[in-house]
Every structure is written in structure tokens, then in C-alpha cells.
Design a protein around this nucleic acid. Structure first.
Lengths: 342, 342
DNA sequence: TTGTAAGCGTTATCAC
DNA sequence: GTGATAACGCTTACAA
């Protein structure tokens, strides 16, 4: 509460020891709650700690102990995205119970950032890493894993290296969306997705195609738009697709941002009750829109919990072979996906 | 890429030096890009670094250098909330340009967690802290600030200590919402807000009351509901309020989660086009709902940038008096706030 | 250009 | 019980 020391710099154990009139080691014992210190000295030490505003220096402590830093990194594409934010929350909750702090950052699909951030985190000696990769090869992590870094990849399957992973069943989820639309009579279903270099985007496209093939529906190249990145771009894509001579009667959007953009476009075109829509990845107000937006919901909470559990087990020394969890999705019908062709 | 060392433990500079056949100091020079090392030795060192998978240990480096850790903490209420997530993104973007990593966590309005997390971060010797307080007194930060920790408080004014702060103009924003509704003929405007121990909640309530007084409208205790915490609770509150003998013709919800809950309730009651609604704090699909939801929008990006700029300036040694930024809000009319009384 | 010594704040070892 | 001393991995002086 007081200020025995200057406005700059922290008191060290030595300062505390001097003020308390004891040795450095005694302070260390008190601070670490080790037994074998008389009540009187312990009290003197605690008093000095208070007066100096002493705070234990974990960096120095870990350096000497050779212990872990009790910190993990979580690298996702965009902390502003609901999927990523929820994932982080799930990880954080579980990490806190272990006294582990979470260093998080967004990659924005930039491989460069992934490299930079991983380097920064490794130099800070994080104990574990949960990664939603922006690179198309995570082989560069090999030395880190070898040196004892625990790594779990989420949302996208790891490439170029065998790592524990947690992913949604993207193919099955996408295929299910198409089958759902087909069951309501649609035969011309448009696909709007991200750049297929992003594994989830390509998996969802594969699922779309598989379902079309299964259903005996022809694939029309004009109804497939990939590399649609933003809400603005998806609006233009929807407009173009619906202006085709033989337009689709239903749309499947492969990411939540694209779904919202498509809803906006359909509303502007006043066809929101005429063109069916199913989106991959849920979003908070999907049920409040008119019509409600039918979504393929990912079990984000489950994925986050699986990821942190896998990570913690590795951090605890688990040495077994790589584990891969594929988490099923659920289709939530809300109206937009149950519109019949006009 | 190779594994000269075991699956546990990291190579140190000494290992590199031995393998390269040079002194420890030479390795240090190469790793830190200091001049004055012959090309040949530098190459030998780099080769050894590669082979051993050596990574610079920032903790040890900082310990000796007495330098900063190039890390900051960001403690918000809920990383899943759009306001918090956007704030974090803004902070993160700016921090990255300075090589500063961000350790983030959610407090969920629990003072205990704030204390725990701050302690953990201080023990890790973060250079700065951006805090959305869950405590009603941040005086406990005094010794940390004194010891050189840079702190900026966001969203809620600091209490019990003078700190740099960035807050929305909650009173003016709330008052503006009420005036807006009044200008459309409403005289009975319901208030739904959080627990008034939360400063933003009480400020918004004050703004509501001030506007009523200014407009010469009577305040009806039955139209004011505080301590509404969740989406579920707000639904019940809306139902009760609208069941009153003399129900409100308009609602003002003081937080985005409550706004969404109110929209859901109004829809379920099939009065969404009959009862006006203005919400404090914008949310992503507010324009897509039917009617669009009129919101008092906070300049989150601006707030985040101001916060990190204030923090960085303190971290750079700025010693001036405490600065307090009050960021204006904007009312965005979208339909729900322009409904006239029935 | 390269290497040696000491020390950053802490803890482990082993004496007193 | 308590305290000297060395050491963790690194960088700053200062020599060579």
C-alpha cells in the first residue's frame, strides 16, 4: 500500500530480505509457502513484502526451476468471429482452473503472421499452443514439438506434420445441408464459399459436390462461387447468381460471414421468402431474422473443450500417438432452409 | 529441422556455442544481430542454431537486460461479447506493430477473478494492462502503478485510484435514446438494464432519468427494471412490463444482450411492430431484423485505439497527469426506434 | 574480432 | 530454523 521504493522498478527478494532483516532464502521460503520458517520471521517477511509492494517474479522463478511458464498460446483467424471467440472462451475457462494464462492473437489468414506469432510465443516459452492454422503446412513446428511444446490444431486438419487435432465434420455437414434443401424440392442449389486453399472451405465444397452426386443432381459451374471473402463480395455474387437465365432456387453459404451477407442481399432483392438458404456455422441472431436462418451448427464449445483437454494431457506428459477428433455438426431448421422452390 | 537433442528440453546458447566451437558470447552476438562477428563464425553459429532447434529465451534475456517483457494484459468482461471482442481486436492490431503480445481473459463481472488475474499478470511482469473493471474499487492497483505498470481503464470509469480512462458517453447516449423515442410521441418509455453496481448500467439509467426530467415526463417505477442480467431474464421482464395496466409504448434496453432478448420477447408477443425499441450498444445483425433495431452505437474501434495509444504512451515513459477520454455515441435509426405509439 | 567475468531475480544444495 | 553459495540462460562490461 505504501511506496518505500521509487516510481520505477520493482522490489526484489533481496530488498525484502534487507528490510525484514533476514536472508534471501528465508524470503523465498515464505513467498513459496515452504515450511520451516518461524512464525515471527514469516510475519516480518510478510510485512516487508506489503510495504515494498513486492511481487514474485515468475520469469526468474521459472528460469531457476526449469519449470513451465503456465502459459499457452491460442492463435485463431479472427477473435471478432463468433466461432473463434467462443472457442477461446471455452479454452480460457478450462485453462484458468489450472492457473494457465492464455495469450491469444488473430491470424487473418496470413501465413506470415502465424510464423511471427509462433516464434514470439516460443521465445516466451509457452507450454502449449492451440492453433487454427493460416499456413498450408505446419511442418515448421516439428522442432518445437520435439523440444516439448504441446500443440493441438483446431478447425482445420494439420498438414505436413502429425498433430493432435479437433475439427468439425465439414463434409458431412455440408452434404447434409444440400440433402436438406433437396428434400424440400430444390434441384438447383448455389454454393458460395471461401477460397478453397482454406481447408474448411474446400471440405465444405467437397461435401456439397458429394451430396449433389448422391442425389443424382447435375453440378452447374455457374452455381458455384468460391474465393468469396467478405460480406460485400457475397452480396455481388448472390446478385449475379440470381440474375442467371436459370437461377438457383436455393443457396448454401459455407461460412457465417457469407451467410449474413447473403441474407442482406436476399432482403435487398426482396426474395428472402422466395429463395431458400442454409448457412454453415451458426450465428447469434439467426433465429430472429425473418425468415429464421437454417444453419449447420458446429459444436464450438465441445471443440474448444476437446482441444484444451488434448493440450493439457500433452502438457501433462502424455506421449501416445496423435489423436484426431472429428466433431459432428447439427442442422438447425429455422425457416430459410425450408422454403420450397417457387 | 533435425533432432540433436532429446524430446524434452531446449537447447541453450551454451549448447549452440559448444556445437559451433565458439564462445557463448559469440552466439549471443549472432542471435541478437550485433555487429562484429566474422561471416565464417556467424555461419557456423547459425548452422548450429538450426541443427539444435535453438530458440532465444526472452525470459532469461529480459531478466538480465532489466527490460520490459513486451507483453500486456487485456482483461474484459466477456470475450464472447461483440463489444469486448472488437475492443480486443483493435488493441491487438496496434500492439502487434510494436511486437507486443496480448494476454487476454474474461472476468464475467467477478471481482475475485480480476484480483487473481491481475496478480498472475503482474507476476509475469506484463508492461501494461487494459482493464474493464469488475471490481468497484481499483485502489489495489496503486502499488503496481507505482512500480511502473502502465494501466488504462476502459468502458467504466476508474474508482479509488486515478488512472487513464476511455469510456463511452453513456449518459448522453442513453438520454439521446429517450429523446429520440419521445420525438416520435412516446411518453411511457420502459427501461431495462443491468445491475446498477455496474457503472455503465447506472450511468445509462441516469441518462434515461435526466432525459425524462428534461422532457417533463413523469418517471414511473413500474417502467424501470434493473439487475436484468441475461437474455432469459429480459424476456420475462418485457412480458411483465407489457402486461401492466398502463404498459409502456416504447422500451430502452441498456445493453446489447438485453436488446436481443427484448427483440425475441417482442417477436414472441407479436408486438415487434407495435412497441418501439432502442438499444444501447450495437450488434452485427441489427439492420437485418424486422424491424431493424435502432441502436446507440459505441465507437468501439476508436475506444480500443485510444486505450492502446494511452497505454503505449505510458509504457514509453509518459509521466503527465491522468487522461480521461469520453467517446461520444451515435444513434443509428433502423426502424424499431421510429415506431409511433399505437 | 573474440572471449572472460559478473550479475539479473530466483531456487536447490548443503552447511550452520 | 536459518543462511551462504552456486546455478538457471542470458547480456553487459571489460579484456585479450
Amino acid at each position: 500500500m505504501s511506496d518505500e521504493h521509487g516510481p520505477q522498478g520493482r522490489a526484489t527478494m533481496q530488498h525484502v530480505a534487507t528490510l525484514a532483516g533476514v536472508s534471501l532464502k528465508t524470503v523465498s521460503r515464505v513467498v513459496n509457502g515452504e515450511p520451516g520458517v518461524s512464525d515471527e520471521l514469516a510475519a516480518r517477511v510478510r510485512d516487508a513484502v506489503q510495504r515494498l509492494g513486492y511481487r514474485h517474479n515468475l520469469a526468474a522463478s521459472n528460469l531457476r526451476r526449469g519449470r513451465r511458464t503456465a502459459s499457452i498460446g491460442v492463435l485463431v483467424q479472427d477473435l471478432g468471429n463468433d466461432y473463434c471467440a467462443e472457442l477461446l472462451r471455452a479454452v480460457e475457462a478450462r485453462a484458468r482452473t489450472r492457473g494457465v494464462v492464455v495469450i491469444s492473437a488473430s491470424l487473418d489468414e496470413e501465413p506470415e503472421r502465424e510464423h511471427e506469432l509462433v516464434t514470439g510465443l516460443v521465445e516466451r516459452r509457452i507450454d502449449g499452443l492451440i492453433l487454427m492454422p493460416a499456413t498450408d503446412d505446419q511442418g515448421y513446428l516439428m522442432p518445437e514439438v520435439h523440444a516439448g511444446l504441446a500443440v493441438v490444431v483446431v478447425d482445420r486438419a494439420p498438414r505436413g506434420i502429425a498433430l493432435d487435432a479437433v475439427v468439425s465434420d465439414n463434409r458431412a455437414g455440408a452434404a447434409n445441408a444440400v440433402r436438406h434443401l433437396s428434400s424440400f424440392g430444390h434441384r438447383r442449389i448455389g454454393f458460395l464459399g471461401d477460397d478453397p486453399v482454406i481447408p474448411t472451405a474446400s471440405e465444405r465444397l467437397v461435401g456439397y459436390r458429394e451430396a449433389l452426386a448422391d442425389l443424382g443432381l447435375p453440378e452447374d459451374a455457374g452455381l458455384v462461387r468460391t474465393a468469396v471473402r467478405s460480406e460485400a463480395e457475397v452480396g455481388a455474387a448472390v446478385r449475379e447468381m440470381l440474375a442467371l437465365p436459370d437461377p438457383p432456387t436455393a443457396l448454401f453459404t459455407a461460412r457465417n460471414v457469407l451467410t449474413v451477407g447473403a441474407v442482406r442481399a436476399l432482403r435487398d432483392l426482396t426474395v428472402r421468402h422466395a429463395v431458400a438458404l442454409v448457412g454453415f456455422d451458426d450465428f447469434p441472431t439467426a433465429d430472429l431474422l425473418d425468415p429464421g436462418v437454417t444453419c449447420v451448427k458446429q459444436a464450438v464449445l465441445t471443440e474448444g473443450e476437446l482441444a484444451i483437454d488434448l493440450l493439457l494431457s500433452r502438457m501433462d506428459g502424455h506421449q501416445g500417438p496423435v489423436r484426431s477428433e472429428v466433431v459432428p455438426t447439427t442442422l438447425v431448421p429455422r425457416g430459410s432452409g425450408e422454403i420450397r422452390p417457387g
